[in-house]
């Protein structure tokens, strides 16, 4: 469902992504792990058609990210830790606003909002509050609900637990497994190894814009003698 071949991104003198390739199948959670500035966010932004690659290619749900950006966006949801939604709108208005871009109107929209709210444990009464009156965790749930409202085939989560308290974080990790269980394709980008260990089926280590390891979670754990963090450090040291 996601196919990335030699993907590259350069900004004038900086090469943020230097040619990475990976595939993610439906029902799979792929962990894109790397330190800050490794190129995770740039990679996900290219997959979400927010940035144009300067080399290579990528397909999301069968659509090319450069030539078919609108089709890609119709089949994709993206959440990142710093992402916000309109704080002066109510939760319902936010979902109504974004839903309209996916042809979700009237009863169908209501049905989807109810579905997302149930999946993310959002009380219906909370949806009538303005976003600025909600807790940080609840705001993040609205951000996620917005991303899954159209039940995208592909969901990209980039440092999505940043700033969340323990309960909200737990709810999010549970949600990731649940959503993958629906046959969806997920990329889970983080630098927190314990989270990746908990939710990912396969992982890729990215450093300085290059994928320095790719394999199943089991293979990664074996590489680190049972610790994903140790595997990550070893592989990055070897790459350096």
């Amino acid at each position: 469902m996601i196919e990335v071949v030699d993907l590259q991104k350069s900004y004038q003198k900086t090469q943020a992504v230097r040619g990475i390739s990976f595939r993610v199948q439906p029902g799979e959670v792929y962990g894109l792990l790397g330190p800050n500035g490794a190129g995770k966010t740039t990679t996900l932004r290219m997959l979400a058609t927010l940035l144009k690659p300067t080399g290579g290619s990528a397909k999301v749900a069968g659509f090319d990210v450069v030539r078919q950006p609108l089709e890609v966006r119709r089949n994709l949801g993206i959440v990142n830790g710093g992402m916000k939604v309109y704080d002066k709108l109510t939760g319902y208005e936010v979902l109504d606003f974004f839903g309209s871009f996916y042809d979700l109107w009237g009863p169908k929209l209501k049905e989807r909002i109810a579905w997302a709210a149930e999946l993310l444990h959002i009380e219906p009464s909370v949806l009538s509050k303005q976003v600025r009156q909600m807790s940080t965790g609840m705001q993040q749930k609205i951000v996620i609900a917005r991303a899954i409202l159209h039940q995208p085939q592909v969901l990209l989560l980039d440092e999505a637990t940043a700033g969340l308290d323990v309960f909200a974080r737990r709810a999010l990790l549970d949600f990731v497994r649940q959503y993958a269980g629906l046959g969806k394709t997920l990329v889970y980008s983080t630098h927190v190894m314990s989270e990746a260990e908990e939710v990912c089926d396969r992982v890729g280590f990215i450093d300085h814009g290059l994928l320095v390891f790719e394999g199943s979670l089991q293979e990664a754990l074996e590489l680190g003698s049972g610790s994903l963090e140790r595997a990550f450090i070893r592989r990055l040291e070897q790459a350096a």
């Binding site: 966006r73 993206i78 939604v85 871009f101 991303a147």
Partner: peptide, 14 residues
């Protein structure tokens, strides 16, 4: 400034 642009631009709107 309010970090809402990414959510907006990731929606399928021309």
């Amino acid at each position: 400034e309010k970090a809402t642009i990414e959510a907006l631009l990731s929606a399928p709107i021309a």
